[in-house]
Simulated assay, not measured.
Amino acid sequence: MRSRHDHVLLAPGADASGRTLKAPSSRARPRVDDRLAPPETRVEYLDGAELFAAPADAPHATQHFDLTYVLGAHVAPGYRGAVDMLTRVDEGSDYAPDASVFAQKPDRGGHRRLEELAFEVSDKQALAVPTSKARRLIDRGVRRVFCILVKQHRVLEWSRETDGWRTLPKDAVIEDPCLVRPLPLQALLDAASSDDAVARALLQKRVPALEAALAEGEARGEARGEARGVALGEARGVALGEARGVALGEARGEARGEARGALLGELRMAQEAITTVLQARGVAVPAKVARTIAGCDDPSKLRRWLKRAATAATAAEVVAGSRRKR
């Protein structure tokens, strides 16, 4: 329901390619940069009535700061943000939204373009004033108007369908072609969330200084990771080498032990065979000869003695010419 005009001049969107949209009207509207209020003063006009824009105190002032901090980081390329920028809405109204976003490229006449997004911050001020301003901004062609209620910790958006405010959920985001990424409402209401939202927006913009800092951080991280990897690899290599050395030593020890055992077994069998052959033939084996045979660890000599045992008349003949190994 609009009582003042039958046609709406909408601000150009992201796909407007710089076109200036004109609405048919029986009379021309003033340009957005025509002034009723003297610039750089605290005077505004609403329906011909002069308003005084008073300086703010906390928390109103701090909310202004948070708004511009977060909004500024989210403005997309090709757009500009502004604070307290006067906009001539109609013949009797010339006032400044607390923050706004508009296309950076001037229109064909060289004048600045109408805001596409406008934000109001309301604390002690009655909601009637932001409501009147929002209705006229929308009527002029601003696409979207928001109001931050400081005390209630809420964000409102003007609805063309109901010609009034609607409350946005606190976990909602503002998605718009003017913004480089969705802007979380929580970042406007909670200072603790502001830095995170700003950082994500600047990363999305690929700010050169931030890109360089990230690249430097990645390089340092890679260098540290490589150094740690080398140290860890060396440590693992030493441990693996030690483990392999132990295993190899044990294997070699076992092999040598088995070979030594086998050799001793063969010697014992040969020694016993010599004594057995002599005894089977009825040849006595004196203790001295038995000690000589048991003390011999030369396999070839034991084989010779075994052959002699088969024919020797005495045990002494078997070991004749040999010295007992001490």
Rank of each mutant, 00 (worst) to 15 (best):
L9D: 05
L9G: 03
A16P: 01
S17T: 02
G18R: 13
G18Q: 08
S25P: 04
S25F: 03
R31E: 02
V32K: 07
D34G: 14
R35N: 06
A37P: 03
P38K: 15
P55D: 10
P55V: 07
A56W: 10
D57Y: 10
A58R: 07
P59D: 01
H64Q: 14
T68C: 00
Y69G: 01
A73W: 09
H74S: 10
Y79L: 07
Y79M: 03
L86E: 00
V89P: 08
E91Y: 13
G92E: 06
D94G: 12
D94K: 13
V101M: 06
Q104M: 09
G109Q: 13
R112C: 04
A118V: 14
A118L: 11
V121M: 10
K124N: 01
L127G: 00
L127N: 02
L127M: 11
A134M: 05
R136L: 11
C147R: 02
I148N: 02
K151I: 09
K151P: 02
R154W: 01
S159H: 05
S159Y: 06
E161G: 01
G164I: 09
R166Y: 01
T167Y: 07
T167D: 05
V173T: 15
D176W: 08
P177S: 07
C178V: 13
P184G: 02
L185I: 07
L188M: 03
R200Q: 14
K205H: 14
L210R: 08
E211L: 11
A212Y: 00
L214M: 11
G217V: 00
E218H: 14
G221R: 13
E222W: 11
E234K: 12
G241N: 13
A243V: 05
A251N: 00
A251E: 08
E254V: 15
G257R: 10
A259Y: 04
G261D: 00
L263I: 09
T275W: 04
L278C: 00
A280E: 05
V285P: 01
A287Y: 12
K288M: 01
V289A: 02
I293N: 05
G295E: 05
D297Y: 11
D298Y: 05
K301A: 10
R303W: 01
R304F: 11
L306P: 06
K307C: 10
A309R: 03
